[in-house]
Design a protein around this nucleic acid. Structure first.
Lengths: 247, 247
DNA sequence: CTTTGTCCCTGATGCAGATCAAAAAGCCTG
DNA sequence: CAGGCTTTTTGATCTGCATCAGGGACAAAG
């Protein structure tokens, strides 16, 4: 799990705040999928000047819950887990962030959750204040930000349905189908779903234990609905898994 | 449960879009708590002109999931439940709306959930298009809208923790403490918590069955942590319930 | 007054998924 | 490539909450 070469973004990747050219963002592979896709060329240059490149190895923390949120991030490569911890150690993962995802949508004073890297990760980091000023001066960017937040909100509501009213099997199926869709936006193929997170992480996302996650996956594999491969799964019977996911 | 006279807002209530005066909103009791609190006087008048008064009895539906979202709403009195239905009838309530709450934060094409009135309810209704145009022309209003959406998002994430990682007892306790806090914003007192929703609704919000909700409430009552009163509960031992809620 | 319907409560029983335990499979690092 | 990690898998057992069943309270309708 330590090295995770992002199988879906295999081509050499020129990152957003990559010093060489004056026009870094132009070559950013996730630009069109992220907030930056809403920017005019001159705004892109302006925002680029505010950004600091961030590069983390797997397991490093991006920020922690309840800390002062002095930065916001746009992930350019790699993935992360976002979670809240209860005092007694129970953990709820509230989401996984993939390339193109924006962390800090809410522009609030403090972080609502912790975030750490699941794989080596690169991101464009901005000072919250500078970013906030930038956005405030550009209503259409604020609008895009709000759209992204709205999308997050409906994902969260969908996750509430999954957590509250679905069985273990349905949870696993929805998780796989949902993740497949997100990976599909980022790459072409979508039969093999990279799983940069551990079984424990999946359990903490779905309100299950590691053991249940493992059992469900091996059962689906035994039933030839999928194939477990290193760092992911390959869906063999998408229809069946989709049916499970939709109840 | 049929008639529910809003015990916390007992004084005669002049509603936002109430024909008498030219200045309806000025007397709106939830104005300062809602989106309208962010408006300048002239904007308030402008928005008021876009609004249509809406008045529903308990059980009437406000809108339904997947329908075209042609309206947005600002609730001025009464409460509502927001929920998603699975094809087989299982239901997840994603939230309860109280006076001052705004429905339609996401400005998306279609409703992500259904909403219906738990009690007689009044609201200011706006055409989504007109409202959207109004907001687009006023960055600071858009910013407020985004703030509200961010707040919704963190509530949803908190609910994910509750659904995924807490026991039945903790769920009930967090629910009561959370609702208490919300009622407290709207009124002064906060020992008696109105529960305009049924036990079934609470169960569908917390991922429990009616029976479990009932059992937990009666157990807390038996243990003198609270008192079950008509259409609500009175907290006798707030500390204890808060401790349960925080795990 | 009885009837009907909804909601709430309570008890008995069952089961999906948790917990406990341990082996197997990968991995890094020296 | 051995040894010590962590992660995953598998099996046995337990349990918290669901399910099933039924009774009582209350309001609205006849």
């Amino acid at each position: 799990m330590a090295s995770h070469p992002e199988p879906h973004l295999a081509a050499p990747l020129t990152l957003c705040p990559n010093a060489k050219a004056a026009t870094h963002c132009e070559q950013c592979r996730v630009r069109s999928l992220s907030l930056c896709g809403a920017l005019e060329p001159d705004e892109l240059i302006e925002l680029d000047r505010l950004s600091r490149p961030l590069s983390l190895s797997a397991r490093e923390t991006i920020f922690e819950q309840d800390e002062l949120a002095d930065s916001v991030f746009n992930i350019t490569a790699g993935s992360a887990r976002l979670y809240r911890l209860l005092p007694d150690g129970r953990r709820q993962i509230v989401g996984f962030a993939l390339p193109g995802d924006f962390l800090g949508l809410s522009l609030t004073e403090r972080n609502a959750f912790s975030a750490d890297a699941l794989t080596p990760l690169t991101a464009c980091q901005f000072s919250r204040q500078a970013f906030s000023d930038f956005v405030d001066a550009k209503p259409h960017v604020l609008r895009k930000l709000h759209q992204l937040a709205s999308h997050e909100l409906s994902m969260a509501q969908e996750q509430m349905v999954i957590l509250g009213r679905r069985t273990a099997e349905e949870k696993i199926a929805s998780f796989l189908i949902g993740l497949r869709k997100r990976w599909a936006r980022l790459s072409q193929q979508s039969v093999t779903i990279p799983l940069p997170m551990t079984r424990q992480d999946i359990g903490d996302f779905l309100g299950l234990t590691v053991e249940t996650v493992s059992r469900m996956l091996t059962r689906l594999a035994r039933e030839k609905a999928l194939l477990i491969v290193p760092d992911g799964v390959r869906l063999l019977d998408v229809k069946r898994i989709e049916t499970m996911a939709e109840s």
